[in-house]
Design a binder for these strands. Structure first.
Length: 437
RNA sequence: GCGGUCAUAGCUCAGUUGGUUAGAGCACAAGAUUGUGAAUCUUGGGGUCGCGGGUUCGAGUCCCGUUGGCCGCCCCA
């Protein structure tokens, strides 16, 4: 047993685990690029104030933060949003619009590890800056859906719940709630799915118990699960803002439908996301069975770039975490088994043959083929076993008999045939055989 | 931060009311096998039984503490 353990919530990636992680990264990157998003990265360590400015002082309890040797208050990044807002804000006037950026990065949160939650984890973040209309949400939600479908997940496996904090504000304003009450009520809505009526207790303590008819109206809106019901519920509250907002909804749902993504998107006003900085559409991706934590979350945050010192710049973004995503893929049998496979395995007779083999081995590797051979001298039987286990398609046999004739024996390990090839032709022959296969 | 539960080999686990030198399967390695394939047989390496303390003639086993894993609460950007 090792004397030192890794820290709680920090994972070690042995080669098979890293192969699975890289599988996520590879398809995330590939998908983002097909949507025209560009990759960026930024420091892992940031000023503590960057996160306090965005989330308030209480965030400090959830951060890996410390004072560095220069007396700076710093924190390991717990998320990418403030950082990307700073990057984009600093060059906003020089960046071509729309700004479509993504990153794959590790984050750190000082929280208790649980299923689907670690203290160090990776996220795929995608953000679109500079577009105030629902065209931005269309792009982001389409990218989110495709980033999950790319792994083989279907509409039976996951869906995106779509909601709108603006509509909640309009609705509650029309019901006569002021801004403070509205924010408290959104907190209750956020918790309602999990806590039921208890979710309203903090509101009641601050503002007095809700009148039964008011509560019924809140619960009715919270329970809206399709667009027709949404329109019907809002019909009595006609107004210009509301009409324009419903037009945004129609456009967003229509465009997602045109992309063939309707079955992945569910209207659900029960989602508001706890974060106060979201300003419009919000969305979360969940597994259909409801067994796991959220797979992804995102929404519009039109005020954040300015709040963090940049120009006013509308933005929409989302993040997918690697932990829940990995669990879902394992559950659905969609995580491939990654077995490292060589292209060529060299079977080598003895010391003299070894010297002759090295020229070919190195030349093949330099040409891009993965070539393995036994590091130490070994019986032929064992070498052929190793060749088979290496996954190689071809074995190159450097035996005394062959070299005496000036040839190398090439064995096809799949169909089990052999032929002699002149020593000088090995590279060309291997290339022909492997390229043809 | 709070509560529950668990911890024996790389992995999955067994280990009797406390009793000699802690076991199995898988995995890994060597041999059978100095020229042909995932088999088989034989053999081997690998453990301060998470860590620390206590009770006892004697602790993997009982008690206390601690660390870590898992589950739930808080939180979840």
């Amino acid at each position: 047993m090792a004397s030192f353990q890794s820290l709680p919530g920090f994972r070690e990636f042995y080669p098979d685990a890293l192969a699975r992680r890289n599988h996520l990264f590879r398809l995330w990157r590939q998908t983002a690029r097909t949507f025209g998003f560009e990759e960026y990265d930024a420091p892992v360590l940031e000023p503590l104030d960057l996160y306090k400015a965005k989330s308030g002082d209480e965030i400090e309890g959830q951060l890996f933060n410390f004072t560095d040797k220069g007396g700076r208050e710093v924190a390991l990044r717990p998320e990418m949003t403030p950082t990307v807002c700073r990057l984009v804000g600093a060059r906003a006037s020089a960046l071509k619009r729309p700004i479509k950026w993504f990153s794959v990065a590790e984050f750190y949160r000082y929280e208790r590890a649980q299923k689907g939650r670690e203290r160090a984890f990776f996220q795929f973040n995608a953000d679109l800056f500079g577009e105030p209309g629902p065209e931005a949400e269309t792009e982001l939600i389409a990218l989110l859906v495709q980033s999950l479908r790319a792994f083989g997940l279907t509409a039976q496996d996951f869906y995106v719940r779509l909601s709108d904090r603006n509509l909640w504000f309009y609705y509650l304003e029309a019901l006569g709630f002021d801004d403070t009450q509205t924010r408290a009520l959104l907190g209750a809505v956020d918790k309602f799915e999990k806590h039921g009526d208890d979710a309203f207790r903090p509101y009641a303590e601050a503002h007095g118990a809700l009148a039964p008819e008011r509560k019924a109206q809140v619960l009715a809106f919270l329970g809206v699960k399709d667009f027709a019901t949404l329109e019907k519920t809002l019909a009595p509250l006609a107004g210009e803002k509301l009409a324009a907002r419903l037009a945004d909804w129609r456009q967003l749902l229509g465009h997602l439908g045109a992309m063939g993504l309707a079955e992945f998107v569910a209207v659900d006003l029960g989602v508001v996301r706890g974060l106060a900085y979201y300003t419009g559409f919000v969305f979360e991706a969940f597994d259909r069975k409801g067994e796991l934590r959220a797979i992804a979350g995102g929404g519009r945050y039109d005020n954040l770039v300015e709040k963090l010192g940049g120009p006013a710049l509308p933005a929409v973004g989302f993040a997918i975490g690697d932990v829940t995503m990995g669990l879902l893929l394992e559950q659905r049998g969609l995580m491939p088994a990654f077995v490292p496979a060589a292209d060529v395995y060299a079977v080598i007779g003895g010391a003299a043959e070894r010297t002759a083999a090295f020229a070919d081995i190195h030349a093949l590797r330099a040409a891009g083929w993965r070539v393995d051979y036994p590091l130490r001298e070994m019986g032929f039987g064992k070498q052929f076993k190793a060749a088979a286990e290496s996954g190689a398609k071809l074995a190159l046999i450097y035996g005394g008999d062959e070299l005496a004739k000036g040839v190398v024996k090439i064995r096809d390990l799949v169909v089990r045939t052999e032929r002699d090839v002149p020593c000088g032709d090995v590279l060309a022959t291997v290339r022909d055989v492997l390229a043809g296969a």
